[in-house]
């Protein structure tokens, strides 16, 4: 029985050229992995590749034991969810409506929502502490509220793996700490795994189980935060 959610072997990724030398890693259930690295080192491209939005440049990438390209799109979306840093914020859309979009992979062709969908939406709204402003327009929220609303949207997808691109990009320190705490709780309670990119190494050290460190020259190192630090993998950040 294959217990890994994601299994990459000799994976190289990139659009027209590979951004990295091949590397392998496994993601078990209930782990928080932070992806760190300088700008332009391919962190977002890596997440998009994991999500199946870009085909791997070479190597193999298994999602729940099956090659990512072979999943039907809808089935894939039930297992892996991605939230981009540069998310368009549509006007006139309430938080509830946005969160409800997370149920799209489960909807029929008329995009209707069942009682079960409503229950899940309400659950994730409570979980992320967004229920009180569920009726407000998402464009009118503060950055902290909006990041939680988009997290709720991802959670509503009921995926086993959630990829977050710079979830703390617009947040101040208390909001960042709260967000990471919330993620940690979800990891422990629901056995969901998060892979998130961040420039906040302090948070990565404090909360992540392992760090994927991109060195900016195509090298990728994976390990427990302190191990990586001892190996000098964070030299680009002068740590």
């Amino acid at each position: 029985m294959n217990t890994f959610l994601i299994q990459a072997e000799n994976l190289r990724f990139g659009y027209d050229r590979a951004l990295n030398t091949g590397f392998s890693f496994e993601l078990p259930a209930g782990e928080l992995i932070a992806v760190a690295g300088p700008n332009g080192s391919g962190k977002t491209t890596f997440l998009k590749t994991l999500a199946g939005l870009i085909s791997p440049y070479s190597g193999s990438l298994l999602l729940c034991g099956k090659e990512i390209r072979e999943w039907r799109l809808k089935e894939r979306a039930r297992r892996i969810s991605i939230q981009f840093a540069t998310q368009t914020v549509p006007p006139l859309m309430t938080v509830y409506e946005v969160v409800s979009l997370g149920r799209t992979p489960y909807a029929d062709i008329w995009d209707s929502r069942t009682e079960e969908d409503a229950q899940i939406i309400n659950k994730v709204l409570k979980q992320t502490n967004t229920a009180e402003f569920a009726g407000r327009e998402i464009a009118s929220l503060s950055d902290g509220e909006r990041s939680r609303a988009f997290l709720a949207r991802s959670l509503a997808q009921c995926a086993k793996v959630i990829l977050l691109d710079e979830p703390s990009a617009f947040l101040d320190i208390p909001h960042t700490v709260n967000l990471f705490r919330l993620l940690k709780t979800i990891v422990q309670e629901e056995k969901i795994s998060f892979v998130l990119t961040t420039h906040n190494l302090e948070m990565a050290f404090r909360f992540s189980d392992r760090i994927l460190c991109f060195d900016g020259n195509g090298g990728i190192h994976l390990g427990k935060p302190l191990e990586l630090k001892e190996k000098g993998c964070f030299s680009w950040a002068e740590i």
Binding site: L53, K74, R76, A77, S81, F84, G102, T104, P105
Partner: peptide, 8 residues
Amino acid sequence: SFAESLGI
């Protein structure tokens, strides 16, 4: 990309 990530 948002639509695509939701299995569209």
